[in-house]
Lab assay of single mutants.
Amino acid sequence: MDVFMKGLSKAKEGVVAAAEKTKQGVAEAAGKTKEGVLYVGSKTKEGVVHGVATVAEKTKEQVTNVGGAVVTGVTAVAQKTVEGAGSIAAATGFVKKDQLGKNEEGAPQEGILEDMPVDPDNEAYEMPSEEGYQDYEPEA
């Protein structure tokens, strides 16, 4: 019985440690998101679009440190934060509304985080759909 109880105690310690790591990862992701939003706020009209992409990228980098179902929630929060940063930029006159959601080359930025393969159960990952990809044929 002692062996059984000791095993359960060790398992509990492992769960607590994993929860603490997840909590730490979420806190880091939130900190990076805040950094990115402050970065966007300090940019001029020309830099705002690039700044919004930076927020998304920093958040995406930190999301990889967070495991399990938390990833889905962090990704949703990050996307809403990026959308909010863009709205703030438009409201303050840093950028025109028609410039939001495009990178410096004018290509749409939507789907940055949505296409990231995420499995809350950590069982399997699927690649994003290939609808947006084109076949590449090298020139002879």
Rank of each mutant, 00 (worst) to 15 (best):
M1W: 00
M1Q: 00
D2N: 13
D2R: 01
D2A: 05
V3H: 05
V3G: 01
V3I: 09
V3Q: 04
F4K: 00
F4M: 02
F4L: 09
F4S: 00
F4I: 10
M5P: 00
M5N: 07
M5V: 15
M5T: 01
K6S: 04
G7N: 05
G7K: 12
L8V: 09
L8M: 14
S9D: 08
S9A: 04
K10D: 04
K10H: 04
K10P: 00
K10C: 06
A11S: 01
A11T: 07
A11H: 00
A11Q: 00
K12I: 02
K12P: 00
K12W: 05
K12L: 06
E13L: 01
G14I: 07
G14M: 04
G14S: 15
V15C: 07
V15I: 08
V16A: 10
V16C: 15
A18W: 13
A18K: 00
A18N: 00
A19S: 04
E20N: 03
E20S: 02
K21Y: 12
K21W: 12
K21M: 11
T22Q: 00
K23F: 07
K23M: 11
K23L: 09
Q24V: 15
G25C: 05
G25D: 05
G25Q: 14
A27T: 07
A27D: 03
A27R: 05
A27C: 12
E28W: 04
E28L: 10
A29F: 11
A29C: 15
A30G: 02
A30H: 01
G31W: 12
G31L: 14
G31A: 03
G31F: 07
G31Q: 12
K32A: 15
K32R: 13
K32H: 10
K32Y: 14
K32S: 12
K32G: 02
T33S: 09
K34A: 14
K34Q: 01
K34I: 08
K34W: 13
K34D: 00
E35T: 11
E35K: 06
E35N: 08
G36A: 15
G36N: 13
G36V: 15
V37N: 00
V37C: 04
V37T: 00
V37K: 00
V37R: 00
L38Y: 15
Y39P: 00
Y39G: 02
V40D: 00
G41T: 01
G41E: 02
G41C: 05
G41V: 10
S42T: 09
K43Y: 14
K43F: 12
K43M: 14
K43N: 14
T44Y: 05
T44S: 13
T44N: 02
T44W: 15
K45R: 13
E46Q: 03
E46K: 02
E46C: 04
E46N: 11
G47V: 12
G47W: 15
V48Q: 00
V48I: 10
V48P: 00
V48N: 01
V49N: 05
V49G: 04
V49I: 12
V49W: 11
H50P: 06
H50D: 06
H50W: 11
H50C: 15
H50L: 09
G51V: 13
G51F: 05
G51D: 02
G51P: 02
V52C: 09
V52F: 04
V52M: 15
V52R: 02
V52A: 11
A53S: 15
A53K: 04
A53I: 13
T54A: 07
T54N: 09
V55Q: 02
V55N: 00
V55E: 01
E57Q: 07
K58C: 08
K58D: 03
K58L: 12
T59K: 01
T59N: 02
K60G: 03
E61T: 06
Q62L: 04
Q62N: 10
V63H: 01
V63T: 09
T64E: 08
N65W: 12
N65A: 10
N65L: 05
V66T: 05
V66M: 11
G67K: 13
G67D: 01
G67N: 04
G68W: 11
G68V: 07
G68H: 06
G68P: 10
G68A: 02
A69H: 14
V70L: 12
V70G: 01
V70E: 03
V70R: 10
V71G: 03
V71P: 06
V71C: 08
T72R: 08
T72M: 04
T72H: 05
G73D: 05
G73L: 08
G73P: 04
V74L: 08
V74E: 02
T75S: 07
T75I: 02
A76D: 05
A76L: 11
A76S: 04
A76F: 03
V77G: 08
V77I: 08
V77S: 02
A78G: 08
A78K: 04
Q79S: 06
Q79V: 10
Q79F: 12
K80R: 09
K80G: 12
K80A: 12
K80E: 06
K80V: 12
K80P: 04
T81N: 05
T81F: 12
T81C: 08
T81I: 12
V82M: 08
V82T: 14
E83C: 05
G84M: 13
G86N: 02
S87C: 06
S87E: 13
S87Y: 06
S87I: 12
S87L: 02
I88E: 04
I88W: 09
A89D: 06
A89N: 07
A90M: 06
A90H: 14
A91I: 03
A91M: 02
A91Y: 07
T92M: 14
T92H: 03
G93M: 03
F94R: 01
F94P: 06
F94I: 08
F94V: 07
V95K: 13
V95H: 01
K96R: 14
K96I: 13
K96Y: 14
K96C: 15
K97Q: 02
D98A: 04
D98L: 09
Q99C: 11
L100Q: 03
L100I: 02
G101D: 12
G101P: 13
G101A: 05
K102Q: 01
K102I: 06
K102N: 14
N103P: 04
N103F: 06
E104N: 01
E105P: 05
E105C: 02
E105F: 12
E105Y: 11
E105K: 01
G106I: 06
G106T: 15
A107D: 11
A107W: 15
A107Q: 02
A107I: 02
P108M: 10
P108F: 12
P108I: 09
Q109K: 06
Q109N: 01
Q109F: 09
G111Y: 11
I112F: 04
I112T: 07
I112W: 04
L113N: 01
L113V: 15
L113R: 06
E114F: 04
E114H: 13
E114W: 14
D115Q: 12
D115L: 02
D115K: 09
M116Y: 13
M116H: 11
M116E: 01
M116L: 09
M116K: 02
V118A: 13
V118M: 03
V118I: 07
V118D: 13
D119I: 04
P120A: 09
P120R: 10
D121T: 09
D121C: 11
N122W: 07
N122Q: 05
N122S: 08
N122C: 12
N122L: 01
N122P: 10
N122Y: 11
E123A: 03
E123P: 15
E123L: 15
E123R: 08
A124D: 08
E126V: 06
E126Q: 04
E126F: 03
E126P: 11
M127D: 03
M127Q: 06
M127E: 12
M127S: 10
M127V: 11
M127I: 08
M127P: 09
P128W: 08
P128S: 09
S129T: 13
S129H: 07
E130S: 03
E130Q: 09
E131V: 12
E131S: 12
E131G: 08
E131I: 13
G132D: 07
G132R: 06
Y133F: 11
Y133I: 01
Q134L: 15
D135L: 08
D135E: 13
D135Q: 10
D135K: 06
Y136P: 03
E137I: 08
E137M: 11
E137L: 05
E137N: 07
P138A: 11
P138R: 05
P138H: 05
P138E: 08
P138Q: 06
P138V: 14
E139F: 15
E139H: 12
A140C: 07
A140W: 15
A140I: 06
A140L: 08
A140T: 13
